[in-house]
Amino acid sequence: MADIAIPYSAVAAKRRREGLTAAALVGPATIFVTFCLLAPLVILFRYSLNEFVPTTKVMVEALTPANYIRFFTDPYYTAILATTVRVAVLVTAVCLLLGFPLAYVVARTQSRFKHLLIISIILPLFVGNAVRAAGWMTIFGTKGAVNATLLWLGLIDAPLQIMFTETAVIIGIIAVNLPFMVLTLQSVIEGIDRAVEEAAFSLGAPPGTMFRRVLWPLALPGIVAGTILTFILAMNAYATPFLLGGPRFKMMAPLVYDQFTKQANWPFGGSIAFILMTVTLLLTVAANLLLQRRAAR
């Protein structure tokens, strides 16, 4: 309304000034990220279309989809992709199952020590994957805690091989991703009014029904966000499969590293990186659509 009274040129000048400050504020970060993230991704994509001569280990400029075709036609590589997706789906499901009760309790607790509870969930995140893998190595080793306990109980005669198995990797990645799931769910559950739950109870709903009809639908945005985050992280896990899976067990991220640094095959490594990113994105979008359609019904 006020704009009408001001002459047009003054409005334009004000707009231009505001536009300039906006550019000055957001410009540097944008330029930096464009230069240091987008440009590298474009170059990597360009590299992935190049040719690689294995005998001389030299990259030859070309414009060929050969690297992508090689990945999808070689059962060795498609098996690694399948393993990665299988592990990620399993990890995500377990994280949701284990994470929901914890997130609910953290969100609803009145305790004075709530902040300590939150810190103990965040702390492992920041301590790093390698350190947590070290913990699992202590537990899973031939003379580790699990085997020592089972031997002592007389349940087994010889130590079990737990290290360097898919099970070890899955257990490890669950522990890595669980805090992300819990924190995402907790923030959403905290936003749900306690009174809504109590209303359901006072209308005679048993806890199961309350959960299904009230809590779950209201928490769905958090569940979707947490699931997507956990899935993406599991697809891209590097340190845990590298350390707990050993040299034989392969997932996509360690494969990219191998191709890139050990084989020096930049074009193929680059194409695997893009395949990993695209598959993750497609599966995420598909799951998102599916969940939203079910929520709409």
Binding site: C36, L37, P40, L41, I43, L44, Y47, I232, M235, N236, Y238, A253, V256, Y257, F260, W266, G269, G270, A273, F274, L276, M277, T280
Partner: peptide, 11 residues
């Protein structure tokens, strides 16, 4: 993903 960031920045 971290490995994609790393490879992209390296090239």
């Amino acid at each position: 993903p971290g490995v994609v960031l790393g490879t992209a920045m390296y090239v």
